[in-house]
């Protein structure tokens, strides 16, 4: 599905990714973890083509993505901070993205799921953070694509929506899709993720299942396991 080889990315003097090589086979939920500034978002944005790496290759379905755009027809992306053009209404935004993609979408269902119907004719600039995030989720899940990339999907969500989101992700997983998630909510990872990629200072520190990580750090709790990794590293 995704094959990353020796990826380097530097912003000015700051080396963010230092030779990341990673293979993600199709199907399942993959959590990309790591402390702040470890390069999670940069890695995701590299896959999306929004960040252009200095060196290294990224293959999706065995095709290099450099200077390509068509491959994005087959992936959905949920950006970390939900920011939209403020002059548009929710309805117009969803309509615009549908228009741009030209694919069939199940937006109605999702709008109902997240209870967005009363907000459809409101301008995006007037929405609360949580509601914006729900719109963000609708946009990310409304197309039927084999690859779904979610950057901090839980931000600002109320518990009901969080449950809905988990349901959605599980449904997509059952449909055999590949889902990449970054998050800081370890409980979310513990219950959802099939595999973990742990980034530290621009390198992959650990790749494997949750169980393997717990075993490696001799901790039963994922949060503690990660804390152990980080303290060991610092010592």
């Amino acid at each position: 599905m995704i094959e990353i080889t020796n990826l380097h990315k530097r912003f000015g003097k700051v080396q963010v990714l230092e030779g990341i090589s990673l293979e993600i086979k199709g199907g399942g939920i993959f959590a990309i973890l790591g402390p702040n500034g470890s390069g999670k978002t940069t890695l995701i944005k590299s896959i999306l083509g929004m960040v252009i790496p200095q060196s290294g290759t990224i293959l999706i379905e065995n095709k290099p993505i450099k200077d390509q755009w068509e491959y994005r027809n087959n992936l959905n992306y949920l950006p970390q901070i939900a920011q939209f053009p403020e002059n548009l209404t929710v309805e117009e935004l969803i309509g615009m993205i549908k228009n741009l993609r030209g694919q069939t979408a199940n937006d109605k269902e999702l709008i109902e799921l997240f209870g967005l119907a009363p907000f459809m004719d409101k301008k995006l600039g007037n929405l609360s953070g949580g509601t914006k995030q729900k719109v963000n989720l609708v946009l990310a899940f409304m197309f039927n694509c084999p690859l779904i990339i979610l950057d901090e999907p839980t931000t600002g969500l109320d518990p009901v929506s969080l449950i809905n989101l988990k349901g959605l992700i599980n449904k997509e997983k059952e449909a055999g899709k590949t889902i990449l998630i970054t998050t800081h909510i370890m409980d979310f990872v513990d219950t959802m993720a099939d595999e973990i990629v742990f980034l530290l200072e621009g390198k992959i520190y650990f790749k494997g299942t949750v169980a393997e990580l717990k075993k490696k750090s001799t901790q039963n709790d994922l949060e503690h396991a990660i804390a152990t990794i980080l303290t060991e590293k610092n010592v």
Binding site: E70, R72, R101
Partner: peptide
């Protein structure tokens, strides 16, 4: 001011 709009578009299957 259109930076958000731009980022939204960048993730879509559209040429830069």
């Amino acid at each position: 001011s259109a930076r958000e709009f731009t980022e939204l578009l960048l993730a879509q299957p559209i040429k830069r």
